[in-house]
Write a protein that binds this DNA or RNA. Structure first.
Lengths: 225, 225, 225, 225
DNA sequence: GATGAATGAGGGTTCATTCAT
DNA sequence: TATGAATGAACCCTCATTCAT
């Protein structure tokens, strides 16, 4: 955020007077623009997560982003587009990560630790968790989003997992039956995200431990002939 | 418009003659009332499932239930109450069933089959699946509902599963680690419900097979010392 | 207004207490409905005439009709439909009159007086004048309306006028050249309507006198061989 | 960011070298300014004519004039002023012409031909037709404009026509009754403009022929004692 | 009880206008 | 002078809720 500023804005006389509105003197046009777009997306995530798509008022998004309501429309065609862009922008970076993960070839006992770590640090302890949850809660009303998610994210996960499982099965680490149901491997991640949103306050959940337990079991089952 | 009504509506004294419209003659006034309430709840389930809470219009619910919009307010205080009652009414019958579940004592290999069958036939292939999904998608906006669900349904499931797992572990059927994470046992059910709503059209999922595979793995893992 | 009331509304105890909002106790459902629709149309005409279609706010229409804004939408799909219905409802009754006018066969010197009278009393001194003016001012932005007007009103006028002129020409009352330009006969009416909206306050116009002068001239020209 | 501007904008002293963008080298700063103003007015005419005052977006005007939206405000106080200036600027040149018209003294049979030609070539086949139409369609919402039009244009036309008619009547060319209603002479012009905007597509109109027919009739009527 | 017409607050979206660059 | 991003007041339309019948 306000990082790449200094040099480019010292136009004219570096006015010592504080500008009227913005708390921080803005960077260049373009930087400012990106900054605003991000602010809107961040605010939108906050609001959509808390209220859901329909119940979210763009008034609130604007207020949270500290911009005028109309400004949103300079960056996004409409509310729905804002929502889609939010999902897209947040999840797209994951795709690359997933691509590489699927290619790694090492004992599942080792890889699984890494996978759990990636999930926890890159998703679960991140805003991305909220985006995935939004995907789950609103996906039905936005078939396009669901399709995007399936095509760009989920199918890659499935393929990666299937590859991992296949190699692990070949090595005799896991049951071959798992190949048909990569969902089973992913299930605890999903449960964690749903649980954290609904029941955490009643009964906290140690995600990392749960996932490790799950993997341990799968590996143990692999040892049975 | 209110012209051709006269004759058919004079049903003041529970006329033994079959009324013109309703397929079944409404028995007593009370029965009629219950019938209407149910019709509203059924219609509400359809609409809430298809559109989500916010996007559902009571107009549509009324139309589907074949009653006037105002009538809804004779049975439910407001839209939110209707929603809560819907969840409550659908899930409450489950509570009793769940109570007994925890007490059953038999080999997990046998019980698990039964559990999968119950899940599929009583929930997954039922409207209850939609209610659970609603729980997942709308729960965050209705903390009361989430709490009710947790208290009346989920915690019972957890307790039951924990009991089952504990005894199975005692018998050496499954790993004792499972006791801490009953969620793992339930996870495929959740995945199935979410998947069916979002990705079924891209990639169908054989729920029963997935769940059986999952259980088989857990049992296999139990055999490893 | 409030004419066909008495009998149909004396339901229950003919409450002597004045109802809370409506100044006049309403007639039957249906009558009330028609009454409201008319009130909305009247208010709309007033506002559209004064502000033009785009500049008119439905808030003002509702206020003038003494109803809530949402009520408009019970009677008209949207603002544009309201506008179209206004034009349609006001001008449709004219069609019949025009049909018969074209058939009358009498000396133009006599008929013309009657035509002028009809124009003045049925249009110029009526709300219809404002609707015709709306047609003129907004027609370009509403091709459908323009088409409706042309098809249902104007073409009938043209046909009628052409018939009249043709017969008059056959009788040697007017020049046959007029047959090709019925617009010439109608022109003063149009001018009057435009003038009254824009310049009346600077220079009043005696429409009737102008039209009679015009007709007199046409008849005089007919006498020249 | 005022980077790549330097070279091409140093047009302070009417550089004889052709500038990069503009087809014509903007002469002085003042000339450039006038040029822009004209471009805005031209664009405004297009848009106002096509959409009407309210429905016209200054965004579109700016785009059509190939300037930035804010630039409009350097030349016109606001949208309404732009509109008024448009009318004023387009019609003002007419004023001079009209002044002299009233003075011409020649047989109406000759003059009328010239008048029709002037109307058709200077107004009807010109953008001025659109301005007159705008006057008609928007005049009611802009009393000032209507007044300007009446004072600067219409009253002059009226006076001129009255003078012409008076002299023609003195010569026995037309009926003296016409003196009281110069509008009758002008009526076909108005009809033509309105007709062309609304009904041309259903039924084309030969304006010149209609006007000549009209004049011929008036002259014929003058021969009757 | 049942109806459905009426209400009016609320929200998404537009666009004239401003102002920092 | 010119730009165009930003603003925020409006305005159309929806829909949960009410209430007279």
């Amino acid at each position: 955020m306000a990082k790449s500023r200094s040099a480019s804005t010292k136009s004219k006389k570096a006015a010592p007077v504080a500008p009227k509105r913005a708390p921080l003197p803005p960077a260049s046009r373009k930087a400012r623009s990106v900054e605003r777009r991000d602010a809107i997306l961040a605010a939108a995530l906050e609001e959509f997560s808390a209220q859901g798509f329909e119940a979210t008022r763009l008034d609130d998004v604007a207020a949270r982003a500290k911009i005028a309501k109309g400004t949103i429309y300079l960056y996004f065609r409409d509310k729905e587009t804002l929502f889609q862009e939010l999902i897209r922008a947040t999840l797209t970076p994951l795709v690359g990560t997933l691509e590489t993960l699927g290619a790694i070839d090492m004992p599942l006992a080792v890889l699984s630790d890494r996978l759990v770590d990636v999930f926890v640090s890159e998703i679960y302890e991140t805003r991305r968790k909220d985006v995935v949850r939004l995907m789950i809660t609103e996906g039905r009303r936005f078939p396009k989003i669901a399709e995007f998610y399936y095509r760009e994210v989920l199918s890659h996960i499935m393929t990666a997992v299937r590859g991992i499982v296949r190699r692990a099965a070949a090595r005799g680490e896991v049951s071959a039956a798992l190949i048909d149901f990569p969902q089973i491997l992913v299930a605890p991640g999903l449960v964690a995200i749903v649980w954290s949103g609904l029941f955490e306050r009643f009964e906290p959940l140690d995600v990392r431990a749960m996932m490790k337990t799950h993997v341990a079991m799968i590996l143990a089952a692999g040892k049975v002939p």
